[in-house]
Design a protein around this nucleic acid. Structure first.
Lengths: 222, 222
DNA sequence: GAACTAACCTAGTGGAGACTAGGAAACTAC
DNA sequence: GTAGTTTCCTAGTCTCCACTAGGTTAGTTC
């Protein structure tokens, strides 16, 4: 049955537990990215790892456990990107650009990680809750950086928090949307994608900071 | 087994074919929205429709067929929102605001339709392709409206098309992201959501039109 | 109220896939 | 080489779910 003729299955060699775990994690990220949680089968993950399904269970307690550990690892990577690139003394615009660029560089280098995180994990409600929970950790880690920048002081004010939440959602939507689009158009240079993100996100925010915000029914000045 | 004690299943009454089809479509939209394609079971859809699974197959050839027809119907609704609200003689900003407002009003009124369309339908690659195909129809219907507004003439120029594609992706990401966030915060008034969308999307675009775009490495002026 | 039609049901089939028990084979230490 | 350990496999079980065959009952027509 398992032929050994497929490229990924040739030379089925014995690996150390740690090495095999890595291989499985990488393969699982791919499959989850391509098929989502429900659509990914342990059998497929095992095949791409060069082993049979029981081996997967030697390293991960269950499909859920495997999924969760990948989710946490990749989200933690992305949080690091923000933590490393955004804070600093330079003008905020430059730091934003640098962060965006680093963020897109990460998803460029780890296309499957990006697709796995940004796909919506429908199906099992338990999985959806898990995804929401881990994503919330990222939000909690990154949003304060931006909040400080916007001069937001009163994090107890609920209207402020709502507005911040919406801007976070906008940021997330733009970055993830562009990332998914870009993953299918690898010929586009990264600067161009970053420039679009800057144009829509940063410039809009700047205007808001300057009190030039749009308000319902008409512009405040004019 | 099927008790009849649940609210949706009480009074299992005989309906006309057309009426039953509507009931099933509404129930299916709910379940697909909540669980995604894979996670939605025909049995659950049937139960919420007050019937047993075979009845679903009296109205739809297969689960895929059911899904596709819902996808097409809801996307067509949203295209209509743009077609009705965006074109006109008023200033573009006002027409954008009106369109955004109408768009959010639609997802406010049809929360399950929104969630079904904007969730990523992972799992079956065939389903993903179907989703992409139907979404592309919407894009093809709506993007020309915005392109005209931006003064884009040369739709044969590939760089222009790439940029337009990215702005479309940004628009999609922002609107869908805000819509999904909003669906969990029904206390937020619609104007506020629309205002955020205007601030990030329209103002950014306006600047770009005025040649004030951000470019990699620094601002063009200044 | 009998005949007809259309909506609906009971009772299955078949396949896919998560997960497991227990054993075989490879690498390591001596 | 032999013993011990660890990696990996064969061969299942069990549950869930899309989908179907064929019969039943509720409305409708005359």
């Amino acid at each position: 049955m398992s032929t050994g003729s497929t490229p990924e299955a040739t030379k089925r060699k014995r690996l150390s537990a740690a090495a095999r775990r890595e291989v499985i994690a990488a393969a699982a990220t791919e499959v989850f990215a391509e098929r989502g949680y429900h659509g990914a089968s342990i059998e497929e993950i095992a095949r791409r790892s060069g082993v049979t399904p029981p081996v997967v269970y030697d390293h991960f307690a269950s499909k859920q456990d495997l999924y969760r550990s990948l989710l946490e690892a990749h989200f933690a990577d992305l949080r690091e990107v923000w933590r490393i690139n955004f804070p600093g003394e330079d003008p905020a615009g430059e730091r934003a650009e640098r962060s965006f660029d680093a963020w897109f560089a990460y998803v460029e280098k780890h296309p499957f990680a990006g697709r796995m995180l940004f796909r919506d994990t429908t199906g099992d409600p338990e999985i959806a809750a898990m995804h929401a929970e881990v994503a919330a950790e990222s939000r909690a880690g990154v949003m304060p950086l931006a909040a400080a920048e916007l001069g937001v002081l009163d994090l107890a004010d609920s209207a402020t928090v709502d507005t911040l939440s919406m801007f976070w959602e906008v940021l997330r939507g733009v970055l993830q949307g562009l990332a998914m689009w870009w993953s299918e158009r690898p010929d586009i240079p990264r600067e161009q994608v970053v420039a679009v993100a800057m144009n829509t996100l940063w410039i809009g925010l700047e205007r808001v900071q300057q009190g030039e915000a749009w308000s319902p029914g008409g512009r405040p000045e004019t």
